[in-house]
Design a protein around this nucleic acid. Structure first.
Lengths: 209, 209
DNA sequence: CTGCACGCCGATCTTGACCTCCACGGAACC
DNA sequence: GGTTCCGTGGAGGTCAAGATCGGCGTGCAG
C-alpha cells in the first residue's frame, strides 16, 4: 500500500523459474518483515507476488523453508558486512567505527531484512534459533580475534567483550531506527556509539583506577 | 530447582481464587518461558497447573491477557532493578557496575522471566511491542539522566549512549547465560562488561585523540 | 437428613492457516 | 491450423488450538 512498486505484478505473466523464485523471495521478505512469521500467511505472499498458492509450493516445500531461505540471506549479509568492516583497515579505532556503521547500514537499508534476524518471532524453532545465535556468535568471534590479539585476554573474556560490543551496536541501531530521529542523523548516532565503544575497548588490558 | 516442585499440584484440590490465580500465573510463566507464546498451548498451562481449561478462562479472558499479565510483571521487575541500581550509589563507576549486575541478576534469576521481555515471539502484537520497547526506553532514560547531567550532552545523544549501554548489558547477559560457562562466573563476566562500559562512558564529553 | 449453591471437569465447536485436487489457457511444433 | 503439454487458478481437506456448555462432587444451612 504505502510503498509497493513491485517488480512486475502483472498477473498471468510467465516467468522463468529463477526469476519467479526471486520474485517470490522478494514478496515473502516484504510480508515477513511487515507481519512477522506467524502473522504472515502464505496466501498473502502468493497474492503479493501475483501468483497463486500452488506455485509457491512448487518453489518451496513449505513456509518454514521459505523463511529460512530469507533468514540465511539476512544472516550472511550482516556477518559479511562485519567481517568486511574488520578487514577494511588495520587501525583498531577505525575498525570499531566501521563495524558500528556496518550495523547501522544494515538496519537502515536492506528493506528491513534485519528484522528477520534481530526481531524474529520464530526463535523457538531450533533451526531459526541456531541461525540467529550464530550471527551474534560469528560477529563476536570476528571481533574477539582482534580484541584477543591486541588486548591479551583469553578467549572467553574477549568473547564477552565482543558480544557486548555487538549487542551495543545492534540494540542502539534498532533504537535509532525505531525512534526515527530527524535531528540525529545515522552518521552522527553511529559515530557517537563508535566513540563509546572505542573508549571502552581501547587499551583494555591495563587495569584502570 | 529446574524440575517442578510446584506449590500443590494435587488434582482436585479446591483453592481460593487468589491462590488459584497465582498458581495459574506461575504455571503459565513456566510454559511461556519454556515454549514461547505461540508454541505454548492453553492446554499445557492448564495441565501444568493441574486444572482444566475452563478454569483458566474463568480467571483470564484469553491467552493474550494472561501473557500480558506476566509480561507486565517482568517488565516492572527489570526496570525497578535498574532504577534501584542507579539509586544505590552516587559514584558513577559503581552505578555502571550495579546496573550491569542488575541485568545479569535478572537474567540469571527470576526463573527465566527475562525471556518474556527480551526474547518474546509476540512483538508484532502492538500491546507487547509497546511494553517491551518501554522497558529499554525506561532503563535508558534512567541512565541517560545521569549521563546527561554529568556529561553535558543533550537528550538525544545521551539516550543513544544509554541505549547502547543497556543493549550491551542485555545482550551480553543473555549470551553469558546461553553459553553457560562454568569457567567464567557471573560476577566476573558482569565485572568485565562493567569495566568496558565504564571505560566507554566515563568522562565522555571530552573528545579524545 | 436433605436441598442448595458453587466451582470444577470432560467433551465439543469453531476458526484460521497450511497444504493439495480438477479445470483452463496459451505456446510450441508438425 | 490443430494437437499436445505445462504452468496457473480457484475451491477444498485437514488439523491444531483457542474458546465454551451440560454433568458432578463437595460443603453448608436448616
Amino acid at each position: 500500500m504505502s510503498t509497493t512498486p513491485e517488480t512486475a505484478p502483472k498477473r498471468g505473466s510467465r516467468l522463468p523459474r529463477l526469476a519467479r523464485r526471486a520474485q517470490l523471495l522478494e514478496a515473502a521478505q516484504e510480508v515477513f518483515v511487515a507481519n512477522g512469521y506467524h502473522a504472515a500467511a502464505m496466501d498473502d505472499i502468493a497474492d503479493r507476488a501475483g501468483v497463486s498458492k500452488p506455485v509457491l509450493y512448487q518453489h518451496f516445500p513449505g513456509k518454514l523453508e521459505l523463511y529460512l531461505a530469507l533468514l540465511d540471506s539476512s544472516c550472511e549479509a550482516i556477518v559479511a558486512s562485519v567481517r568486511e568492516a574488520l578487514r577494511s583497515t588495520e587501525d583498531n579505532k577505525q575498525r570499531v567505527a566501521a563495524t558500528i556503521h556496518a550495523f547501522y547500514d544494515y538496519v537502515a537499508n536492506a528493506q528491513g531484512a534485519f528484522r528477520l534476524v534481530f526481531e524474529s518471532d520464530l526463535t523457538n524453532e531450533p533451526a531459526v534459533r541456531e541461525r540467529v545465535d550464530r550471527v551474534t556468535q560469528a560477529c563476536a568471534e570476528a571481533c574477539s580475534e582482534v580484541i584477543s590479539a591486541d588486548a591479551g585476554l583469553n578467549k572467553e573474556q574477549s568473547m564477552v567483550l565482543a558480544v557486548s560490543l555487538v549487542g551495543m551496536a545492534q540494540v542502539s541501531a534498532r533504537y535509532w531506527l525505531a525512534s526515527d530521529n530527524p535531528t540525529l542523523a545515522q552518521q552522527q548516532a553511529a559515530d557517537l556509539v563508535a566513540s563509546l565503544a572505542w573508549r571502552g575497548i581501547r587499551g583494555f588490558p591495563r587495569t584502570e583506577s
